[in-house]
Amino acid sequence: MKARMQTMLTHFGEENIHGAVVPPIFLNSTFVHDSYEAFQEGEGYYYSRVANPTLDVLEKKLAALEQGEAAKAFASGMAALSAVLFHFLKQGDHAVCSTPAYGGTFGILGSYMHKFGISVDFVDFRDTDRVRAAIKPNTRLIVCESYSTFFMDVFDLAAIVAMAKEHGLHTVIDNTCASPANLRPLEWGFDVVVHSASKYLGGHSDVIAGAVISSEAIIDRIVQTEYGIFGGALGPFEAWLVTRGLKTFGLRMRQHADSAMQIARMLEANDQVAKVNFPFLPGHEQHALTRKQFDAPSGLLSFELRGGKAAAVRMINRLRYFKIGVSWGGFESLVYSPGMSGGHEQFAGTDYEPRLDPLIRISVGLEDPADLMDDLRSALEVPA
């Protein structure tokens, strides 16, 4: 009998060690063997930079959660993504990446990879014709996100996968924003899923971690090369923290989704708000596609104020429960605006650029939604 998600996360992949309800943490760096021959046979563990029993528990859960054959946990989401990119790309190769992209993704593909002779085109994946036009004879990889972290744009998953298969390209998708509670890209035909497990998977804002989920063949090749060579292994204690977070993942995601929907509707009705970037709202231009592809929202959304940057600054400074901070997916509610920081080269000259300063992104936490809505309403009030 196949267990449903929350039941699987509670029990799957855990060994019964001395009757412990919570799996122990194997903090040791090295493992010994009984004989010369036993070591040569390669059974069991030998060094935690390559494998560790505590990580095994987490990786089994992550693979099952994303409906993949295997998973590997990394020291951060960027460590996971970097390993995947370097695995598939070599000198002279080309990649196509969705835009807007997460800042770290844009950084490594937009400039860093150039030193290795790897080129990339950033394309609006909402227009599949533009994606097709960006594919070149040396294109090897398509990189995208389940939806963008500032504007919550979505794209036709099936169309992108079909295009990639037509041209013999591998596909990599960052599913951090949506989370596997709402989208499982491997079921749509993507080759590799990447996560920042620091966010919804961990859920407690107390761990930095990443993950890659794919076929056994791809994960095995990454483990044999990039995982061991780059040294981006996740520590056992951090793996234990993410596993602990997964115990309540399904419950947390339902609360995030319910609260985010209530808040999005409230913001949509407020005269100070020009636009709510939340495609789960019935009036959003991408609502039909969103409902087709996603089971539910996560807790991430953004909105744009009519008063420009000054209104955004005033509102952010008046919030009480939404704390100013980067990241998302934790128990606490956070607020951030791209106008607070630089490094937005990917938006220069695009339709997105004038939308940055008045844009406010919120990560809806697990506080009572009524209190969060009161906080937002109060902060939106125009001073007399």
Rank of each mutant, 00 (worst) to 15 (best):
E238A: 13
L301D: 00
P383G: 11
C177S: 07
Q67N: 15
H87R: 10
H204Y: 14
G232P: 08
I17H: 06
I316V: 05
T350D: 00
V192P: 03
N277Q: 00
V192Q: 03
L376Q: 02
M315D: 04
M5V: 05
G343A: 12
A159K: 13
Q255G: 09
K72H: 01
G307T: 06
K199G: 00
D34H: 14
E268I: 05
V276L: 02
E353W: 10
M5S: 13
R132F: 02
L334T: 04
P369W: 01
P369S: 05
H18A: 13
R361F: 03
G107Q: 02
R49L: 12
G235M: 07
V172D: 12
A158Y: 11
P23W: 03
V123R: 10
S327D: 11
Y46V: 14
Y352W: 08
L366Y: 12
K136V: 00
L27T: 15
R306W: 07
H204G: 10
Y147M: 14
R126M: 14
G245N: 03
G228K: 05
K90Q: 14
P282E: 04
Q67C: 09
L65C: 04
S205N: 13
L141F: 12
D127Q: 13
Q262D: 01
A239P: 02
P236H: 11
A269Y: 04
T149L: 14
T243I: 00
P185L: 04
R254P: 00
P383S: 09
P369G: 03
I160R: 03
A311Y: 05
V172R: 11
L300Q: 09
E268K: 13
G231N: 08
G77N: 02
G250K: 04
I218M: 11
W328Y: 15
E226A: 13
F106I: 00
G299A: 05
L380D: 01
S146F: 01
P297K: 04
L186Y: 05
L319A: 02
P236N: 08
E69I: 08
Q91W: 09
Y102D: 14
F31M: 09
G117E: 02
H204K: 10
K323I: 09
K275N: 12
L267N: 10
M1L: 10
E59N: 06
Y102Q: 15
I360P: 08
R244Y: 06
W328I: 01
T243F: 07
A310C: 02
S48I: 01
M373V: 02
V120W: 00
G13M: 01
Y112E: 12
G228E: 08
V154Q: 07
I142H: 10
V207A: 15
G203D: 10
H204R: 13
E37K: 11
L372G: 02
G231I: 03
V32K: 15
R4I: 12
V223D: 10
A257R: 10
T290Q: 08
H167D: 07
E187V: 11
N138E: 15
E381R: 14
R4K: 14
M261T: 03
C144Y: 00
R4H: 15
F86Y: 14
F190I: 01
G343D: 07
